[in-house]
Design a protein around this nucleic acid. Structure first.
Lengths: 190, 190
DNA sequence: GGCTCCATGTAAAACGTTACATGATTTC
DNA sequence: GAAATCATGTAACGTTTTACATGGAGCC
């Protein structure tokens, strides 16, 4: 993406994801890294080695501040908090276009399936894919049940868009499972 | 991903996409770059500046060969062709696991929609999203019509998995449109 | 003469993963 | 006492984007 030379210019998707987490509540880098594993990992991933420097850049851009809190590591433990500018930047980004292009390895595989001469191997691959996506669908559905059980799903509350995000994941997983069924019943002989 | 130090070890997704293109027919880097814009861009992207060096690496790994053909540029024009090893490597990769994690910027936006206090702005954002995905769906559907019109959609022919890939895209786009409708009718007040 | 297309390449910077490093506390 | 967890950070490498560079051919 574009460069980030000035404090007002664009922020990476990871940066925005971190702002989104901190908009919910202040947190340390360690806690943010945990939250990137769950629930954010369903749609975005980052390791702590990417998160810590990114927090530094966001702070340099004036979107975050930190204060040191008691901790146990050899380095100081920092609790980060959104600034008003950070909140504005994230809200602005959220309403903006989804400009990032899709990168779907799954489709690259599918698009080359013609090369496999043994139809049984193709069936097996699709079956495995179906099982995987079905599993994912169940994970999303229990996640949804959890969100609904937690309540606070009114517009303007974080859980409202947590639910929306999970529903989007469910829609995608359902589409993928339906595609596998189409492959197995209609597009593959036997 | 992992390092690519030896000739037998793994290849990047871009490398596999290029092998997939060359498995269909030999081509120059320029033609491959065009094909990465259409139709591959629906699920993977790469610029020529990434493609030319990658072709060099694939050739160094013994998966491709090239011969010079008449051309007009200041550099020699090279036509690349898959080796038997390249064909094997790609077929093996195709049947392997889809290990790359999902990165879906759209869901990051959705997950932060709670921050937008004006429900009308949310409705507008979802409507725009719906129009975009609906447009994409139509593009995929005319692509599908084209593939069916071209024929040669039997198992083992490239068009067979071209069709499968487009159907996967259609399933995804349909799921996304359905999600937008759910948002507008059931998840947003008014 | 200027614009676009053909056709290839390199350089710099941003983004992402893996590995290395430190050291205290809690659990088995 | 060994292993996992807490908690942060840097280094090396791979991947991707943007920008720079070259020069011939066809079109208006």
């Amino acid at each position: 993406m574009a460069a980030r030379t000035t404090s007002t210019s664009d922020t990476s998707v990871l940066g925005q994801a971190l702002l989104g987490l901190l908009a919910r509540r202040p947190a340390t880098g360690y806690v943010l890294a945990q939250q990137m594993r769950h629930p954010i990992a369903f749609f975005w991933q980052a390791r702590h080695s990417q998160i810590y420097p990114e927090l530094g850049r966001l702070e340099a851009a004036g979107l975050l501040t930190h204060r040191e809190i008691p901790g146990r590591g050899p380095h100081p433990t920092k609790e980060y908090r959104l600034t008003a500018a950070g909140r504005r930047a994230h809200e602005h980004w959220v309403l903006g276009d989804v400009d990032q292009p899709v990168r779907d390895v799954e489709t690259v595989h599918v698009w080359s399936l013609w090369m496999v001469t043994d139809a049984e191997q193709v069936r097996a691959w699709v079956s495995t894919r179906r099982a995987h996506r079905q599993q994912q669908l169940q994970t999303y559905e229990s996640e949804r049940a959890q969100i609904i059980a937690d309540g606070n799903t009114g517009v303007g509350e974080p859980n409202w868009s947590n639910l929306a995000a999970v529903e989007l994941g469910i829609a995608g997983a359902r589409g993928s499972v339906a595609w596998c069924d189409w492959m197995l019943t209609e597009h593959l002989p036997g």
